[in-house]
Simulated scan of single mutants.
Amino acid sequence: MASTLFAWALCWKRPRPHRDEVRDPIPTQRLDITTTEPATQPECCYLLHLPTELRLVIFDVLFANHTIQVWPSETELCGVEPAAFAPDPNKPRRLLRVPCLGVALLETCRQLYLEGLPVFHQRNIFQFDVRHFAKLFPCAPGLHCVGTVRHVSLLYSHWADSELWTLTFDLLRMMRLETLSIISGISYNVRPLVESFALNKRWGRQLLAIRGLRALDITLSEVWLQSHPSRVKQVDSDGREVDELLPLKLLVGEYRQLMVGPEADERYLAFLEEQTDGPLSVA
């Protein structure tokens, strides 16, 4: 505090130059814009002269391999923030704000827009809270790109009723998804979460109707895992270490068997035939 006041005192006591005080002359060697001809504008964009393959590489470097979190905003239609999620730990995702992704390049001309926008949609993970997904996706990125978004991550941080999940799954089925991640941070006990996400429940039936995935993950948030480290690994009465997340991992494995891989559809049809309580309905 004293050093701050001392600095202010030095600034206050510093003598100010008089208005008639002689200053250094202005340099005379400077550009005279009145006599200099303006630079000749290029007739075309040099980027368009490159092969399409090179332009796609440039697009990938500028605005691909990111995780984009979209959330509702009071002042704007939606907002975008970095998201702490990487589906492949060996390939960490860069977490940046959308203005830093180089998307301004898409606004330069129609051709770059049509070529680059699919890269932005297909090569990024769009992360939403389940409560806002069905409402925000039509606004950003927009229903016009529902067929180009390939990677979606859903945060299940608050309870969502069955109708909200139905709207969510209806929208997901409209996409041509390659990866889907559902991150839950809501339950303090893994067992109720596993029961609500069971294959024979309405939630599971709607999830199984999403076809063509290359990767699926249902996990707990890092915040939950860090807040409950003792509940992840426990010791039973015989002194053996028990993984409390094992039921969830087994459930995710069952979903992957029916949804991921080249033989998933065949296993899924066999699973439907084994059901004894009538045909599964996602409605």
Score class of each variant (00 low, 15 high):
residue 1 M to C: 04
residue 4 T to Y: 03
residue 7 A to V: 06
residue 14 R to S: 09
residue 16 R to S: 12
residue 21 E to L: 10
residue 25 P to D: 12
residue 27 P to G: 07
residue 28 T to E: 12
residue 29 Q to H: 14
residue 30 R to T: 15
residue 35 T to F: 10
residue 48 L to P: 05
residue 49 H to W: 06
residue 53 E to N: 11
residue 56 L to Q: 08
residue 57 V to Y: 12
residue 62 L to H: 12
residue 63 F to R: 06
residue 65 N to G: 07
residue 72 P to N: 00
residue 74 E to S: 02
residue 76 E to N: 09
residue 81 E to Q: 11
residue 91 K to M: 11
residue 100 C to M: 15
residue 103 V to G: 13
residue 105 L to H: 04
residue 110 R to F: 03
residue 115 E to N: 05
residue 117 L to M: 15
residue 123 R to G: 03
residue 127 Q to A: 15
residue 129 D to A: 11
residue 132 H to C: 09
residue 136 L to D: 03
residue 139 C to G: 00
residue 141 P to T: 14
residue 142 G to M: 09
residue 147 G to K: 03
residue 148 T to L: 10
residue 150 R to G: 06
residue 155 L to V: 06
residue 156 Y to F: 14
residue 164 L to N: 05
residue 171 L to T: 15
residue 173 R to T: 14
residue 178 E to V: 02
residue 182 I to K: 09
residue 184 S to H: 09
residue 184 S to K: 09
residue 186 I to M: 12
residue 188 Y to I: 05
residue 196 S to H: 09
residue 196 S to K: 08
residue 200 N to Q: 14
residue 206 Q to C: 08
residue 224 W to D: 07
residue 228 H to Y: 05
residue 230 S to Y: 02
residue 241 E to C: 06
residue 249 K to T: 10
residue 250 L to V: 13
residue 251 L to E: 04
residue 255 Y to W: 04
residue 255 Y to P: 05
residue 259 M to G: 01
residue 259 M to D: 07
residue 262 P to A: 00
residue 267 R to C: 09
residue 270 A to F: 03
residue 272 L to Q: 12
residue 277 D to I: 07
residue 277 D to M: 08
residue 278 G to T: 12
residue 279 P to T: 08
residue 280 L to K: 01
residue 283 A to Q: 04
